[in-house]
Amino acid sequence: MIFLLLLRLALAETYNVTDSKVSFLAVGKPAMVKIRGEGKCLSGTFKLSGKEMLISADCDLNKLSTGIDMRDGHMKEKYLETGKPGYALAHFEGSVLYKDGKNPFQGKMKLHGEERPITGEVTVKGTNMVFEWKSKVSDHKIAIPEYLGVKVADEVTVTVTTDGALQ
């Protein structure tokens, strides 16, 4: 079994990421403010085995920005606690059908020390992939963020965009 898995990985093509972006969209209440954070924080391995893309990637949370310095500081220090050991990275693992069009994907995400399953959709167009899923802040034992009276809703939409080349 392990031999077959190793063989599968050995025969896999590598998808070299040439450009990527991780972004999240949260709604702040009571004003329904759309808080969008993003950053070029992704690193990891993308292996194509047959028609299946196997993914293991990290996002350096310190590279995320919402456009407001003070809000970024609160987000990283008070809520994501990126200063704590192991908390600076969010880790994604999953597999997805690598075929043009919209495909479902399953995986898991470790954030703030808590690993949770994720399910979403990936849109594949050539070598461009856009993953989108919804995660709950509270599932990862993160306090519901509040910044100067604007409280973020528990559910956050995460989008990961990658461009790459197969080798």
Partner: peptide, 27 residues
């Protein structure tokens, strides 16, 4: 910021700024 209440206490905007609105003025 399609709704005014992120920055203003008044639902229709204008007048007293919230703490968030004050911060946004700088940022």
């Amino acid at each position: 910021y399609v709704n005014c209440t992120a920055c203003h206490v008044s639902p229709d905007g204008g007048g007293m700024l919230t703490a968030y609105g004050r911060s946004l003025s700088k940022e």
